[in-house]
């Protein structure tokens, strides 16, 4: 059974298409990761699920209800931890949690008990009675997470929950998320940290240019690549013509598949090999055609390889490419009501 279903979601900000036919199904009780570079449309999708934003078209179902029509019921069921932590600097951490409890209409006794539980669980007791303005990024994020969990939501939505956090805060948050997952809370988490999605997610989707380009269990996605990942550079700074020649050469070698020229990384070649014997054959073919091997790395497939396979570039390259194109002023404006 799916707890969240998104169908054909489209959303544009002026000329910028944030979502371009996004389809997503999140199983109940799972920890689902959305992986993609900044600007891929992850936050927009999450804001639509949270009822903060209306799509231009498409359907959104949360717990079997139309979230676009039954907004209040949807809000009751979810906890949202936004990418930019929004806290009132003048209030203390405890006061912020109390306010949050009142916004969710919690009973006074239950609110107090729940706040204490979360203070203990997220190790906030030492600083919870200080004003939020004095908190570090990690403290703010933990407090924000506690706010999102205060009313024990069936669905927890986290937008880049560990960006810029210290190791201790990240570890506390990861620990809690694993615990929640075991308690049947459905968690939807967006991240551009590969290791975070790899470590935490039961299932995941890769989002690129506003739509899902691959989805499934992280291990299955890696296995589907069908072998080990090799990155080859025939020169430190190769060019397109040379890279294409090498690609044509090695794609015909038995046991080599999915050959991709990675333009962003100096026209290196990324491909899969079935076993180590293929690498020996590869060296022979290259030297026969007078190509040198400047660098060759060989590794088990990672989610970055899954991303590379699906998009033709690494996540880091996609980040860099999008960073130059993003209009932060427009994004800020769009995130304001």
């Amino acid at each position: 059974m799916f707890f969240i279903q998104l169908r054909d979601l489209f959303k544009s900000y002026g000329p910028v298409k944030a979502l371009n036919g996004l389809n997503l199904e999140v199983p109940k009780g799972s920890l689902y990761g959305l992986l993609g570079p900044n600007g891929a449309g992850k936050s927009t999708a999450l804001r639509i699920i949270c009822t903060l934003l209306e799509p231009d078209s498409g359907d959104v179902e949360v717990a079997g209800r139309n979230a676009l029509l039954e907004e209040k019921e949807t809000r009751r069921r979810l906890g949202y931890v936004a990418q930019d932590v929004a806290i009132d600097k003048i209030l203390t951490g405890r006061e912020l949690l109390q306010l949050q409890g009142d916004l969710y209409h919690l009973d006074k006794k239950y609110k107090k008990k729940r706040i204490e539980e979360l203070i203990q669980r997220l190790e906030m007791h030492e600083w919870i009675d200080r004003r939020c303005g004095s908190f570090s990024g990690g403290m703010k994020r933990r407090l924000d997470l506690a706010s999102g969990l205060l009313h024990e939501p069936e669905l927890l939505i986290l937008d880049e929950p560990t960006v810029g956090l210290d190791i201790e805060s990240r570890s506390v948050i990861w620990g809690l998320l694993k615990e929640l997952r075991n308690n049947e809370t459905t968690i939807l988490l967006s991240s551009h940290y590969l290791e975070e999605v790899d470590e935490l997610a039961d299932e995941m989707a890769i989002i690129d240019k506003g739509k899902v380009i691959a989805s499934g269990k992280p291990d299955d996605l890696k296995k589907e690549l069908g072998g080990d990942r090799v990155t080859l550079r025939v020169r430190e700074f190769s060019n397109e013509v040379e890279a294409e020649s090498v690609r044509k050469l090695i794609k015909n070698i038995n046991g080599v598949s999915n050959v991709v020229v990675n333009q962003q990384q100096g026209y290196s070649l990324n491909f899969l090999v079935q076993n180590n014997d293929v690498l020996s054959k590869l060296s022979g073919h290259l030297s026969k055609e007078n190509f040198e091997v400047f660098a060759l790395s060989h590794s088990r497939p990672s989610l970055d390889d899954v991303y590379l396979q699906a998009t033709g570039k690494t996540l880091m390259d996609a980040e860099l490419e999008l960073a130059g194109k993003r209009d932060f002023k427009l994004e800020n404006k769009n995130s304001m009501r």
Partner: peptide, 14 residues
């Protein structure tokens, strides 16, 4: 609005 606190209020089932 500017600091995103309004979103915290709007995502609550007021």
């Amino acid at each position: 609005r500017e600091f995103g606190f309004l979103n915290r209020l709007l995502v609550a089932p007021l």
